[in-house]
């Protein structure tokens, strides 16, 4: 007798067979809706469409030129969504430029079979430096334990699948330890000041969803930990001595070339989305 799978079994096998990027797209979309509807960002659909649309187009164009067998359109959607969540500009062309640079960077700036820069990170930094009409709003999520839980839980599901929870935790622990030492132990502020900083939504989004990109992190586990600790230290220095509000984003772009260096030192097979 032919066995028919029960509904829960169908669901669980469907979930298991999903690419981690499906989860990522799902969660990032939820975050965007949360921002638009609960945090009053305003529904700037033309901007979101531009970011996601241009990312996809450049991705497909790049794949066509390179002649890739397997399309990475999902990664392009993730990059587009990430840009929607972080980058601000009143000019559509600037957003289109950011998306173009983000994705084109994946095809043009490569070392030993992987791209060097986190695409979203590269797109954001490029337009911040090249134009004077783009900015990041680090305060736009506010700060709260709910955000920590919300982003943390969503990220855990993705990160367990891609095996990058080490990156996220070593960055978080390094940054938190340094921040706690300075804010609470040295300066003498109450723990509420420390928690308010650590529960900033933009910081958490970066920690759970940007720094953990499996392709641009070092392939080897030990190398990843060294790399994320370095980013944590750099972000701390930039925020406390140069008073840069979006310090982790700058730290990541500075540390990106180190991935190549660490990959040379610690040999490991390359990450594949569809294993």
């Amino acid at each position: 007798m032919a066995q028919t799978a029960s509904f829960p079994q169908t669901i669980s096998s469907t979930v298991r067979s999903l690419d981690p990027r499906d989860f990522q797209i799902f969660f990032l979309s939820i975050f965007l809706c949360y921002g638009i509807y609960a945090l009053d960002w305003g529904a700037e659909w033309s901007k979101y469409t531009t970011l996601i649309g241009v990312s996809l187009m450049v991705q497909l164009l790049g794949e066509w030129i390179v002649g890739n067998q397997q399309s990475s359109w999902k990664s392009a959607v993730i990059t587009g969504l990430g840009l929607c969540l972080l980058l601000k500009s009143s000019e559509l062309w600037v957003l289109a430029l950011a998306a173009t640079i983000a994705i084109a960077g994946k095809f043009l700036i490569r070392y030993k079979g992987k791209h060097v820069f986190n695409p979203g990170n590269l797109g954001i930094i490029a337009v911040l430096l090249l134009t004077d009409v783009a900015w990041i709003s680090p305060g736009q999520w506010g700060s709260g334990f709910m955000l920590l839980f919300f982003f943390g839980a969503a990220a855990t599901m993705v990160l367990l699948k891609v095996g990058r929870i080490d990156t996220c935790l070593s960055f978080l622990i390094t940054f938190a330890a340094l921040e706690f030492s300075r804010t609470v132990l040295y300066l003498g502020w109450g723990p509420d000041v420390f928690f308010h900083k650590m529960c900033n939504g933009s910081f958490l989004l970066f920690t759970f969803f940007m720094i953990t990109d499996p392709v641009t992190t070092p392939s080897d586990g030990k190398a990843r930990i060294i790399w994320s600790v370095l980013i944590g230290v750099l972000a701390f220095v930039l925020s406390h001595w140069l008073y840069i509000h979006a310090a982790p984003i700058w730290a990541l772009i500075i540390a990106a070339p180190l991935t190549a260096l660490l990959d040379r030192k610690f040999k490991h097979s390359l990450f594949q989305w569809n294993r």
Binding site: L39, P138, G139, Q140, G142, S143, K197, H245
Partner: peptide, 14 residues
């Protein structure tokens, strides 16, 4: 000179 001022560590809402 440049444009709006917003808060960097709390939400600025309309």
């Amino acid at each position: 000179k440049e444009g709006r001022v917003e808060c960097a560590n709390y939400r600025t809402v309309k």
